[in-house]
Design a protein around this nucleic acid. Sequence first.
DNA 1: AGAGCGATTTTTGTCGACAAATAAAATACA
DNA 2: TGTATTTTATTTGTCGACAAAAATCGCTCT
Lengths: 236, 236
Amino acid sequence: MTDKDSDASSAPERKRGSGVKMVYDLLRDEILDLVLPPGSPIDEVQLAERFKMSRTPIREALVRLAGEGLIATLPNRSTMVSNIDFLNLHTFFDALVLMYRVTTRLAAEHHRQEDLEVIRARQAEFAAAVQAQDALAMIATNAAFHSAIAEAGRNPYFTGLFNRLLDEGRRILRLYYQSYDDRLPQRFVDEHEDMIAVIAARDVEAADRLARTHAEQIVEQIQKLFARKDRLEIAL
Amino acid sequence: MTDKDSDASSAPERKRGSGVKMVYDLLRDEILDLVLPPGSPIDEVQLAERFKMSRTPIREALVRLAGEGLIATLPNRSTMVSNIDFLNLHTFFDALVLMYRVTTRLAAEHHRQEDLEVIRARQAEFAAAVQAQDALAMIATNAAFHSAIAEAGRNPYFTGLFNRLLDEGRRILRLYYQSYDDRLPQRFVDEHEDMIAVIAARDVEAADRLARTHAEQIVEQIQKLFARKDRLEIAL
DNA sequence: AGAGCGATTTTTGTCGACAAATAAAATACA
DNA sequence: TGTATTTTATTTGTCGACAAAAATCGCTCT
C-alpha cells in the first residue's frame, strides 16, 4: 500500500520552512489513525531518506510529537509510538464527558450566528461520512463537529484542552469504529441534530444534558466493546 | 546579576543527552517567572554561546517551548516570548475555576491516606513561603499544593490539563503577587486548611463549594488588580 | 558447551558550515 | 529632500559528518 502522496515528487525542491511541519503532520496523522500502531519503532534515518531530507528537521518534528506524548523516547536508545493506556481508560472518559458538557454548554451561551453555520456544515460532513460508511472520515468529522461547537463557546483554553482530548481519543475511537464495521452511528447523527437545536435555542441546561447523555452513551458503547474483545488482541 | 548557576562551569564536559532538557527547563522557568518578559527576543546563537553548545539542541528546546505556546516563532524571522492574552483573561479564569472544582472534588472522592500527607506537606511549604513573604516561592508552592490535590484525584488527564493551566497562570500570578508586595495571602493559607479538611472528610459537595469560592476569590482579586493598573504599564 | 569479556555495529546526540529568507543599510534617482 | 532600488548583513533552516551509548556479535577461557 504505497498510497496517496508520493514522498519523492519529481521536484526535489521543497519550500524552506515546510519540512518539519510536513513530517509532523503526516506522522501525527499516521499515529492517530493507527497506521503506525502503538509500539511501532520510529527510525530517524529511515524517515530522513523517506522524506529526502536531513535528520535535523525530522528530529524537530519528533521532539514536538514527544511533547504531545504521542511518541516515547528512551534516553539514548530507540523511540517508538506511545501505547494507549487501557487501564486508566475510564479517567479519559471522565475528562471527555466533562469537556463535552462544558463546551456544548458554553456554545449555547456564547455562540453567534456564523458559528451555527459552521457547526451545521460539520454535521453535514459527519452525516455524509456515516452514509458512506467511511470509518476514518466519521472519526475526523465527528471530532470536527464537536470542535466547532467548542469554538462557538469562545474559550480558547477549553477548546485547546478539548481538542487535545479528542486527539488522544482518536486512536481509541479508531479501534471502536473499525470494530463496529462502520455501521450503527446513525443514532449519533440524530443526537447531533438535537444538540444543534438546543444550542441555537440558547437552552444552556438542555445543552448540558444532551452533551452528557451523548458522551456517556459513546463511552458506554466503547466500554462494552473493550469488555468483549478481551483487550488481549489489541493491547500490545 | 549573573546569579545562581554559572553556565560555563570549569568542566567543559556535559552529559550527553542533558543539553536540551537543561535549556528547556531553564528557559521555561525564566519565561514563567517573568525573568524573560513577554516579547523578549530569543536569539539562538546567543543561547548557543551562553550554554556553550551548538544551535541544534537549543533549537530542539525551542521547538518544545513553542509546542507549549510559551514562545512564538515567526516563520523565517525572529522568535520571542509569547504575550499574555490580557483580553481573553476571563476565559482563562473560567477554565481555572472549573479545574479547581473538578480536581478538588475528585480528590475528596478518590484520595488515599498517603495523598493527604503530601498535600499537607505542600500546604506547609506554602505557609512558610507566605510567612517569608517570598513571592516566587508562594506561586510555586501554591501551584504544588493544588497540583498535589489534583494528583489525589487520580485522573491523569485532569492533572495534566490542570498543571498546564497552572503553568499558563504562573506568569499572571507573578504579576499579581509582585503587585501586592507579598502580603495578604495569609487568607489563602486558611482556606487551604479548610480544603484539606473537607477532602479528608470526603465531603464531595463541600470540596466543590470551597474550591469554587477559593478560585473565584483569587480571580476577583486579580481582576481588581488589572482594573487598577491600567494594564498599560504591564502590557507591551 | 556456557559464561564472561572485548570488538563491531547501529543509532542517537551534537557539531560546524552553508544557503535561503528577510531586514537593514547604502546608493541612485527624481 | 524624499523615495525607489540595489547591496550588505543578520538570522534562520538544513545539511553532512563525527563522537558517545547501547546493543549485538564474536572470541576466549574454564
